[in-house]
Design a binder for these strands. Structure first.
Lengths: 222, 222
DNA sequence: GTCTATAGATTGATAGAC
DNA sequence: GTCTATCAATCTATAGAC
């Protein structure tokens, strides 16, 4: 079949992507060299540039390969909630919105064997010093996050715009940190939380964050 | 006076530290070269290694210079709360504990002119891919965080150990993200929160996190 | 303490044979 | 598509004059 070449290429590309994901998670983008990646992936050094053009393009593909499904699932979840809310004529529930946004990141990275490397990579998105790379994440994250903001506004009509946006960024911060913790076994500090199933972590996150979102606005203290 | 040399040295060292802090915040540790740093700080390239020995040692000093006062203030705040609680024979308040831990990071970085670069650096602590650097942060953060854990246990005796530690890590995540947002004017995503005074951000953080810490434990759902 | 000059290693990317 | 060989740039660190 004509697939012979395609399969061969596909295997090599996939092997490079998988190994790059692992090394990027372990050592960061800048600290991972093409030569080390080629060695670990059992491919020739020149093959990496042949298949991806440049290191920057490789980074972009490693990220978008996993983020795209996560983002689609987030949008689908949020839109389903939006439709239900419209049909029932009442605002969506805070817990439902948070779970709709949070869960896909954990579920869709669960398939990979061993450590969930992409959780570590995505958990570093907002800390990435390289603006080009940071923008890759932002471009993917933006639509679903904006929809989350809009729906959360319906769920919490009494909250001021500024407070709502600060709180949703606290959500992003807690989520990012939890993703890094779940993706790697390295302890970031003493007294790290115990290893837990994905569902347990998501439930802890949602319970904590939903209560925080619903806290009384303290604007009157100013 | 014999201070002439000392002052000269001190000026150079301080100028290097200040410029390094800014560049590390803007571009990360790995992406900041000694030659660029020397150029921006108006010192000779060899002077950097003369004063600090190596790049790694410079990184360590940039971090510890700011973290040490923050850590001391955190410990002092928490110990004061502990004493008051002991004297009054009742557990400390969640809000007080969180504010005691959170506030020093924002207050003690406020003195620097312009952008608060160290907030960006410290906000990336748990995302740092280089284990050596990550351990510098952890070594400094550990004592105050452990004390926070212990006191929070007294404030929330009904919470299981696992849930308490997960929630305190959600606190660390939200705090880190807020620090990055406050330290830099770059928008990490659309719908970023508005620029606010330090005190306002701290109050938003404490209100959100204290309510989350106090959420009912959902362990019975398992 | 500050400078010039440079060693020594590593990097991303490419040219060209097969 | 895969290989070897190599280029050009960049980096940290140091040696040695002043």
């Amino acid at each position: 079949m004509a697939d012979t070449h395609k399969t061969k290429q596909s295997d090599t590309k996939t092997r490079i992507l998988d190994e790059a994901e692992k090394l990027f998670a372990q050592n960061g983008f800048k600290n991972t060299s093409i030569s080390l990646l080629a060695r670990k992936a059992h491919v020739n050094q020149a093959a990496v540039n042949y298949h991806f053009g440049s290191k920057g393009a490789l980074v972009e593909q490693v990220i978008s390969r996993r983020i795209s499904p996560i983002d689609r699932q987030r949008m689908a979840n949020l839109q389903a909630i939006e439709e239900t809310a419209t049909r029932q004529g009442r605002p969506p529930a805070i817990e439902d919105l948070l779970r709709a946004y949070i869960e896909p990141a954990f579920i869709l990275t669960e398939t990979a064997p061993g450590e969930k490397w992409f959780l570590v990579i995505a958990g570093r998105a907002f800390s990435e010093p390289d603006e080009t790379i940071r923008n890759v994440f932002i471009r993917h994250f933006e639509p679903a996050f904006l929809l989350l903001v809009a729906l959360m506004k319906e769920a919490l009509p009494g909250l001021s715009d500024a407070v709502l946006r600060w709180r949703l960024h606290f959500v992003l911060g807690a989520l990012s940190h939890a993703m890094r913790l779940c993706g790697s076994h390295r302890l970031p500090v003493a007294s790290a939380p115990p290893p837990d199933t994905t569902e347990t972590v998501v439930r802890h996150l949602v319970a904590f964050l939903a209560t925080g979102m619903d806290a009384p606005d303290d604007a009157e203290h100013e």
